Simulated scan of single mutants.
Amino acid sequence: MSTLTLAVRDSSTMLRRNLLHARRYPSLTLNLLLTPVMLLLLFVYVFGDTMSGGAGRDAYLAYLLPGIMLMTVGSTTIGTAVSVAMDMSEGIIARFRTMAIHRGSILVGHVIGSVIQSVASVVLVGAVGVALGFRSTDATALEWLAAFGLLVLFSLSLTWIAVGMGLVSPNAEAASNNAMPLIFLPLISSAFVPLHSMPGWFQPIAEYQPFTPAIETLRGLLLGTGIGHNGWLALGWCVGLAVLGYFWSAAKFNKQ
């Protein structure tokens, strides 16, 4: 059996293990998913009329939903950091290392499983948005495909970062705390209000972070508005974070 075939087979096994684990213990995923949904409902129905600047709740929902979808990706990947930390602290990784399996498949199974869960969570949040009245009539089929690709790529990049956070955490609680920036960063991005409405000293903080260009790109794709340079910035952030997370995770995993 070739090395590639062995890696694919073992990665599939680890993926199935992680998906079964998520199904048997859905409370973590449910708790992380409820946060974006509750924020969506809160900002649309409580703050929507005020924050829309007179445009109405439907207009603010269209503005808000792309940011909430990417926040969902960030919150879902926290579960990956917790899951990796639990595997490391409970000794299952040490047992896997004594078995004749491809070493990289352990991390790959976590990553692919997290991406699948993130995409499923985003679809659910998107369905809630549609139920509330969100419509994307101006987006073409190609723009929808590009939006889906961005969500998958962004999920992949954040998942590798989350895996690294899980590997450096001594336990699940520490992993959850270390991964909190993945939820906090969307709160200080353009997810809820435009950059120009923020204080001048704060605008660079909101602008030069990974979530804002990704949100603006997704917003432009779904609403048919301009993307400008945000598309390249979002792609650069995704590739950079994915490469950083991969080498960080691989180095830490191989040391232990």
Rank of each mutant, 00 (worst) to 15 (best):
T3Q: 10
L4W: 09
T5F: 10
A7M: 12
L15K: 09
R17E: 08
H21T: 07
T29A: 11
L32P: 00
P36F: 00
L41P: 05
F43R: 00
Y45H: 14
G48F: 13
D49E: 14
D49P: 05
A55R: 13
G56I: 06
D58V: 03
A59E: 11
L61V: 03
M69C: 14
M69G: 05
L70M: 07
T72Q: 12
V73Q: 09
V73P: 10
I78S: 02
A81L: 04
D87C: 04
M88E: 15
M88D: 10
I92D: 03
A94R: 12
T98Q: 09
A100R: 15
H102I: 00
G109C: 06
V111D: 07
G113C: 02
S118M: 07
S118T: 12
A127D: 02
A127Y: 04
G133Y: 09
A141F: 09
A141I: 10
A146C: 11
A146I: 11
A147L: 07
L153R: 10
L158Q: 13
M165H: 01
A179F: 06
A179T: 08
M180L: 15
P181M: 10
L182D: 07
S190M: 00
F192V: 12
H196W: 09
M198N: 04
G200A: 15
W201R: 01
F202C: 07
F202G: 03
Q203C: 05
P204V: 01
A206S: 14
E207H: 06
A214N: 08
L218G: 02
G220D: 00
T225N: 04
G228R: 01
H229K: 02
H229Y: 08
W232S: 08
L233P: 00
G236K: 08
V243L: 14
L244E: 07
G245I: 14
A250F: 07
A251M: 05
K252N: 12
Q256G: 15
